[in-house]
Amino acid sequence: MMLARVADSLYWAGRYVERAEHVSRLAQVMLNATLDPSEAAGQVLALTRAALGAPPGVQEPLELARALSLDRDNPGSVVMSLARARENARQVRDQITTESWERLNMLYLRAVGARAGASFNADPLGFLGEIVSDLHLFKGAADSTMSHGEGWRFMVTGVFLERAQLIGRLLKAAFTPIAVASEEPLALVTVLRMACALEPYLRTYTADLNPRFILEFLMFDEDFPRSIRHATDQIERHLSHLARGRELGRQDPQRLAGRLNARLAFADIGEVEGPGAGELLAAVEAETTAIHEAMYETFVAYPLELRLPAA
């Protein structure tokens, strides 16, 4: 048993935490990749902007990184995502263990603190890297101290739903229409780094960098935690737990999640050749949005008269 508003806040806390991590990582990888002037640098900048819908006007890598990290007028910036994650967590403070709360709160206080700008300027890569590893600590603390019940499942579903969408957008920006990132190895490495996937990819495919393999890995790999397939798998798993013993009404999020997961599980590799990848990625975006809406209608904003307790 859990309050509907609480479930909603935990779900959003999960989404914002994931968003903050992704944007931090993209900004960090982008900064790193544009350090030495190569042909790939321009591509990486374009890729970052396309994957995040970055604010127009900012052209210089360091400026872009700063806008993505600290700009409070940019709703997608790291600091705003952290503030929202923390605000959602604070609204349900009684549901989150002290260990996980303190991790998130500390990170938030540092990112909004008076010294945040100065420490970014002093060492932007270090600043961003630290945020990413602190978010890992938060997720680890939540995983190992929170009871893996309803509240935790809502939060984790938020994390994976957000991840499926973000990785989908990254791949869309990188590979549709066919390979903006072309065959330029540096750009391909950057895409993998942005998905935190370089080392696992190399172990699976060796150093054979090829857009097709990268798409295959980040879309269909079952085991890699940042592939879309893995994310939809997790979403389906948690939703089926959450659905237990409930009548789910006409919009059943579990069914939608199962359908999307099956589509990815049984997709033909040929589907990502040519324009196929774009279609599949568009489907991922549309279906995850549908799952999000179905969850809201089923668990949070249901009409009262339908859900009165029996007798």
């Binding site: 048993m1 859990m2 309050l3 508003r5 309803e150 409930r246 009262l304 008269e305 009165l308 307790p309």
Partner: peptide, 14 residues
């Protein structure tokens, strides 16, 4: 509802 107080939970009113 009918002079009874409920809270909205994820599995209906309680």
């Amino acid at each position: 509802h009918d002079d009874l107080v409920y809270m909205r939970t994820t599995s209906g009113l309680r």
